[in-house]
């Protein structure tokens, strides 16, 4: 079990350290890279908890897709992040309040009796490695007890997606588009035109 504790402290220390570096690094790209490091370590913690499916989903969704686009945007944008930082003290009370709310909510999870048959958080100090596959367990709860909540969160994501598309969709005037079919159907008869050009006149 000592290896378990060593890896737990390793993952959690790096996760907390990199989370601190996210907000304290001067270079925004470094911030994003530390954010990714933090995600990866969090997924390591999930593996230690025996939640291997969640760990992999965290890496695939957040690290593999969301953070890539985030990094992409941060590299491209020319934002003066030093200027943004100036409002640090101004936003501090608000941020602290948000953090407090989050901590209270997470704490409440431990005392939630039942939404469904299954308790949300089981108090345990050892990894639960059940006989039944993790993925199956999640599926059995997600698509039965939490079906409506799951669908609602899906719809919220859909609304957000449509919203961002409508925000960026605009008429760009004349855009030259490639029509693959018409291009494939070209042959020598309709692609080339023969013209008799008179001397000194041109077309």
């Amino acid at each position: 079990m000592i290896l378990y504790s060593i890896s737990f402290y390793l993952f959690s220390t790096i996760a907390v350290f990199s989370a601190l570096m996210v907000i304290s690094a001067k270079n925004p790209v470094h911030s994003v890279l530390f954010l990714i490091l933090s995600f990866v370590n969090a997924s390591g913690l999930f593996v230690l908890l025996g939640a291997e499916f969640l760990a992999m989903i965290l890496v695939v969704v957040y690290v593999g897709a969301v953070a890539v686009l985030f990094l992409f945007v941060v590299m491209m944008l020319d934002i003066n992040f030093i200027k943004l930082r100036e409002g640090f003290l101004q936003y501090l009370p608000f941020g602290a309040l948000l953090g407090l709310v989050l901590i209270i909510e997470l704490g409440m999870l431990f005392y939630t009796e039942t939404y469904s048959e299954v308790r949300l958080v089981e108090f345990s100090n050892k990894p639960l490695i059940a006989e039944i596959e993790n993925t199956k367990m999640i599926g059995e709860i997600l698509y039965t007890d939490y079906f409506y909540l799951f669908q609602i969160s899906g719809i919220i994501l859909l609304v957000a997606m449509i919203g961002s598309i409508t925000l960026t969709l605009r008429d760009r005037g004349k855009v030259k588009r490639q029509d693959i079919n018409s291009q494939n159907n070209l042959d020598s008869k309709n692609a080339i035109e023969k013209k008799k050009v008179k001397l000194g006149e041109g077309i």
């Binding site: 992999m56 890496v59 690290v63 992409f72 993790n134």
Partner: peptide
């Protein structure tokens, strides 16, 4: 148990080296 997810995750991380 999640072998294929692991492979998928590792291959999706590959983009970071390039970026």
């Amino acid at each position: 148990n999640v072998g294929i997810m692991y492979l998928f995750a590792v291959s999706s991380l590959g983009v970071y080296g390039v970026i």
